[in-house]
Write a protein that binds this DNA or RNA. Structure first.
Lengths: 200, 200
DNA sequence: TGGGTGTTGTTGAATATTGAACATTCCCCA
DNA sequence: TGGGGAATGTTCAATATTCAACAACACCCA
């Protein structure tokens, strides 16, 4: 794993303040109109200090997204999940719950055709997590985990995107159930169902 | 005015954090049981940093009281008060309101026979403010403003102390009215005679 | 009673943050 | 369309904060 050097208390506080300030501003105005000065003032930090930690405001946005994804992982306990099924409804529900609680952020993110940036990260994240889980399972030799992960992740991200852009018209539980149905109905391999059909 | 040297952003943030942490702890445990380590941890600040700004926790308490008194002054606008009457009911009410909003702090302060420390500061503060106001008024030669201020301040502090220690059994308005009556009934000089209104 | 434990102030060197300046680029509007 | 005022990155010396260590002391309890 990464060295994970113990970081000074000051940098932690500063990063936290900057992130919080940026997030606030991001929910208030258009990203393009947010200025580094805005951020530094809101965070009560010298403007130069921002550049000390982030390349520019795009990097800031990147890392902000990154932290949210980490939050997603933590919230869902994706890593330490039991090995039974790839996507039990209860777990899927937790995922949708997470997006629900952070709705303002993700909504703003998707709304402004900044979309690509975010979709890429989310897709990569989900795909990677799925892949990890698939590999950990007893896998059937004929299933390409790489492709499987990519397939499921794409579908998943698409559903989430639709859900958010439409203002979350359904409950997280409903979404979880539907997604679960869709995944299984399309013959995606899960170690629980065993009901797969031939890869075509 | 005082030089009021512009202070670095860091010291302001640090002082604020330490004060907030101390105040929290003060409302949670006995002052004697609060440790400097407690404070520094709660404030997310190095222990040494506390000593960089305060002599010890007693000094911290002192300054905490001081800030509250400054807050009182700001809240009541005592300094910039109109010159009409020393103690119009409306102003007295603001004072009691202030103590009410900061009840937990003052209550804790008075409850623990640390009393003397606080009473002294409060008395000095009130007395000084009153004195200032009396001097600014057209004073009658036969009245000793010094004595007058001391007298009124003592009575005032006593009333406040009673009010807080008894759990604020009356509204701030009621207290203000009563105090106003008491002050006037005892023949304390106020420019009541000049009770003209509308000069404002 | 004595030792272990935790608290207190105080150091010194390492590091992060600050404020101020700078040249450059961006972009609004006259 | 050009100019002027903001915003951008970057630098520097000054300063505040950090971490780790220290000796001295207080307190508790075995």
């Amino acid at each position: 794993m990464a060295a994970e050097t113990k970081t000074d208390r000051r940098v932690l506080k500063t990063r936290k303040a900057i992130m919080a300030a940026f997030l606030e501003l991001f929910l208030e105005k258009e990203f393009e109109h947010i200025t580094v000065l805005d951020i530094s003032e809101r965070a009560d930090v010298n403007r130069g200090t921002v550049y000390l930690h982030y390349m520019d405001k795009f990097d800031l946005l990147d890392q902000c997204i990154g932290e949210h994804l980490e939050g997603l992982a933590a919230f869902c306990g994706l890593h330490v999940l039991s090995t039974e099924s790839v996507t039990p409804v209860s777990e899927l529900k937790r995922v949708f719950d997470f997006f629900q609680t952070n709705f303002p952020f993700f909504s703003a993110l998707l709304a402004k055709k900044q979309t690509t940036l975010f979709r890429e990260q989310l897709l990569a994240f989900v795909s990677s997590n799925l892949r990890q889980k698939l590999d950990a399972q007893v896998s059937r030799p004929e299933v390409d985990n790489e492709l499987n992960a990519q397939f499921m992740a794409s579908a998943f991200v698409g559903i989430v995107e639709w859900w958010i852009l439409h203002g979350m018209p359904h409950t997280s539980l409903y979404m979880a159930e539907q997604l679960h149905l869709l995944l299984n109905r399309n013959g995606i391999y899960t170690s629980k169902g065993m009901n797969r059909e031939g890869t075509h």
